[in-house]
């Protein structure tokens, strides 16, 4: 039996004025795609960079592929692949050169051509790094994370700055990495991405892991698997006692009223009748399944993008 890909206990990191990581525990099994989900400043990058050996933690124990940083630093580095949140290379290096150069640092490496093909960057293989677009740099960074044929891959916001089509094709790349038997740990702000890619997730906020589980488990944890939405033209009006009348909580979000419910079938007639009676000027009614966004809202009392 192989050691787990990652085991973290009691990780802490204090920056001046902010406890960036406030006691994080994580377990990631081999072959999983594991997601860290959380808003800006949640501590995702700090957590990853400590695990990658870039930042020193104030406290905590880390085992990467069953190895300890103090004694097996070089071996860990040889066996993990890292995409940083922002990768700054020398301005005048080309993707092909960067991949060849970085490949040379490892005991085994994949060819530049193969990797450029994988991330669809062949046509920019010989362009200077500084001339690449944000999305192209992002794809090069992903290719560089795979250059050593790693067992464990860290991707910090791999799809930020990509257009929708490039995002989808990056999801495909991640699925392929998983299919090759590698473990992937990624961070993201995107709910749909987390749901689509991750086998398991940890939701982070203020340096803490709020909850961990598969996307389905997390949603099931909410006793309210559905949400009824009333949409308005322009900003939604104040609730003003309406929630009492229908016997359910109403959350105002932008141009929506959101009413989480375990039983939309019985809520809907009551709701529409009450809305009619109170002359609520809503435009449309929509019933949807609860998402990770709702889990986050429920756990933190605020939306992911706030």
């Amino acid at each position: 039996m192989l050691e787990p890909a990652l085991r973290v206990r009691g990780l802490k990191k204090q920056y001046p004025g902010v406890l960036a990581v406030a006691g994080v525990d994580l377990d990631v099994a081999r072959g999983e795609v594991f997601g860290l989900l959380g808003p800006n400043g949640a501590g995702k990058t700090t957590t990853l960079e400590i695990i990658e050996g870039l930042t020193e933690a104030d406290a905590g124990a880390i085992e990467v592929l069953g190895l300890d940083w103090k004694r097996h630093g070089t071996e860990i580095r040889s066996r993990i692949g890292v995409q940083l949140q922002s990768t700054s290379l020398f301005n005048k290096i080309t993707p092909r050169e960067a991949l060849t150069l970085y490949g040379g640092y490892y005991p085994k490496s994949r060819t530049a051509d193969e990797l450029l093909e994988l991330v669809q960057l062949k046509d920019k293989a010989d362009a200077y790094h500084i001339t690449l677009s944000g999305g192209q740099m992002q794809r090069l960074a992903l290719a560089m994370a795979l250059v050593n044929d790693p067992e464990l891959v860290f991707l910090d916001e791999p799809t930020t700055g990509l257009d929708p089509q490039a995002r989808r094709s990056l999801w495909e790349v991640v699925r392929r990495i998983k299919a090759e038997g590698r473990t992937v740990i990624l961070t993201t702000h995107y709910m749909d991405e987390a749901e689509a890619l991750c086998d398991r997730l940890a939701i982070m906020d203020h340096g803490r892991v709020l909850t961990t589980g598969t996307p389905a488990e997390l949603i099931a944890q909410l006793a309210i698997p559905s949400v009824v939405e009333l949409s308005f033209e322009g900003a939604a009006p104040a609730v003003d006692g309406f929630d009492a009348r229908i016997g359910a909580a109403v959350e105002v979000r932008g141009d929506l009223w959101e009413i989480p419910t375990p039983d939309p079938k019985s809520l809907l007639p009551r709701l529409l009748e009450a809305a009619e009676a109170a002359a609520i000027p809503y435009q449309q009614v929509h019933v949807r399944r609860a998402t990770l966004e709702d889990v986050f809202l429920h756990k933190t009392g605020r939306s992911l993008r706030d």
């Binding site: 990658e52 050996g53 870039l54 070089t74 580095r77 040889s78 993990i80 890292v82 940083l84 922002s86 990768t87 700054s88 290379l89 020398f90 970085y102 640092y105 490892y106 560089m144 050593n148």
Partner: peptide, 11 residues
């Protein structure tokens, strides 16, 4: 400018 950080995660 963080140009060495990417090197730091290599062996």
């Amino acid at each position: 400018k963080g140009k060495f950080r990417r090197l730091a995660v290599t062996p």
